[in-house]
Design a protein around this nucleic acid. Sequence first.
DNA 1: GACTGGCACTCGAAAGTCCGGAGTGCCAAG
DNA 2: CTTGGCACTCCGGACTTTCGAGTGCCAGTC
Lengths: 349, 349
Amino acid sequence: MADAAERVVAVLDERKLDVLRAIVEDYVATHEPVGSKTLVDRHNLGVSPATVRNDMAALEEEGYITQPHTSAGRIPTDAGYRLFVDKLSTVKSLSPAEKKAISSFLVGAVDLDDVVRRTVRLLAQITRQVAIVQYPTLSRSSVRHIEVVTMTPRRLLLVLITSTGRVEQRIVEAQEDVDEQLIADLRTRLNSALTGQRLTDAATSLANVTDTFAPADRNLVAAIVASLLEAFTVEGEQRIAVGGAANLTRYGDDFERNVKPVLEALEEHVILLKLLGEATSPQTLTVRIGHENPYEGLVTTSVVATGYGSKSEALATLGIVGPTHMDYPSTMGAVRAVARYVSQILADS
Amino acid sequence: MADAAERVVAVLDERKLDVLRAIVEDYVATHEPVGSKTLVDRHNLGVSPATVRNDMAALEEEGYITQPHTSAGRIPTDAGYRLFVDKLSTVKSLSPAEKKAISSFLVGAVDLDDVVRRTVRLLAQITRQVAIVQYPTLSRSSVRHIEVVTMTPRRLLLVLITSTGRVEQRIVEAQEDVDEQLIADLRTRLNSALTGQRLTDAATSLANVTDTFAPADRNLVAAIVASLLEAFTVEGEQRIAVGGAANLTRYGDDFERNVKPVLEALEEHVILLKLLGEATSPQTLTVRIGHENPYEGLVTTSVVATGYGSKSEALATLGIVGPTHMDYPSTMGAVRAVARYVSQILADS
DNA sequence: GACTGGCACTCGAAAGTCCGGAGTGCCAAG
DNA sequence: CTTGGCACTCCGGACTTTCGAGTGCCAGTC
């Protein structure tokens, strides 16, 4: 990585990088191929168009920009954006107005779900992109409370409340009518055995609980335990909230290529989880540009993501999806700011 | 209503209605204006194009069809679709394959949320439209259990479990550290006072509970009660699940007019609730065509909705949103079938 | 050697033109 | 009332033309 960067600097001098930066900024602003003339007009590069043309030729040679067709301006390639994000830009901090919007947006959230929903909305609004927020993962949280409720004589509802305020529910069907006394007993034992444990550890503790019951009741208890186990495992359910899909309409007109795949991906939460990737610390932003995405449909799309949660370890990931020709500095700033703010909110819990 | 229908029959004879039906069916299939010649070719109307032309002129006069421009075929107006839906079509029942898909789709749902999510997916899949499912409303369900959990010494989590299996959560901040004993006490009293009551009635019962506590504790109890009350009220949160947005890509190419407003509406759950309208019985389908929608952006869009829940009273509403030129008989059949099936699933609870 | 002005060339986008055909309305005859 | 005939309309597609932004290259200058 540092190696490649060195090579870049070796091959492309400072001014060529300036030119690339200018091209990216211009193209992001106008969405139109940018030519040498307009470039020197808009940015004061202090050289003539001819010189810029030479630089452009070099940049194209290196694969950072390309021409849609002969006799048209240049547009950045994915590699060009990559270089821009890595070396040529600094994350832009938010305007006071945006900061204010963030801090006022989340007040009055009634529960964790509400926090997540509001966050999605907020993120979509200030980035003007499609926002994705993963619900805090279970694995790192601990058991706060377990409730067992009889819905009908044969149907039980398990409710698991975690330290992060997340609530998981499971329905369990019994083979025969269940005894209320047994349920009360089970509720007590489960809570005393598991409360305060991390979900990962709780799984092992669960096994012991079963053994303390009379053989006659084992069947039912086993079913309940199995269901709880499922609720404990992270795989079971990685929930995700999505918002701002209407921003897709600003993608441009190549509907079939740009919009459809994104909409399809948004329905597939498994894909979204892959897109967001591993939760990083809120300090580190992950940017995936075009073909770097682990999903073929999104070659015209970039993802900006980061983790949120406590300082030391990330609880989950949030981010945005947008066209590769997005305004990276601003978007990255917004994503980072929102992640930090949500982390703070959750830390207060 | 019956009056208007009478008038229609009076003014337009049987064959003209046949022509209208043919036009609608053709236009839905091809999405292209349909002319007299193609009409007699495709449907065997037994008359000449010239005759059909006369009928078309009459239909246009009455406002059921229109010409995009002179020397083009006709397309149905909203009124035309209305007449078609009301008088000229019968709801189509599903193919065996689709029926099978429905019944297999919902097996293995782990909780109410899961049922709703799966339903949305299913509905979107078989109608190939955007599906909307409202979570069962609280008002008609009753209190199954109330749990009070201390998250931190000053932060409480209330969990309300209803008879429909829905779980509501609320976070309450206390002014000072709360006493565990008080919480336990409160938990017991709340449950004994409210369990089994309908949410609407429970609200009144709540008031009495407060009075049974020592004045010193009233502050906290009042805060909790207020939060519960909020959870009881229907207004508080009408949740909605949406799916199949990718189907919007089949809307045609007039992006700005057809797709954007729909995407925007999908983000606004308040609007969606209005679109779905009052929950009807699963027997009754509500169809809103174009301008009949209570939302200006959706003039090119129709909504097909119905209630689901027990036979006697609907719990909530589900439906689809699609272009006005949709296949109404099939769509209506699908919506009805899914609503019935979900009702059945929930009735087993 | 790097930069610049000049110049011929390319090629897409927009505008203009043309034409065929689907569709219409109207009318007179069956 | 229905129908065949007929003149008319007008959209859509194909084709052509024009315009201009942009390029690459080269020779000259600092």
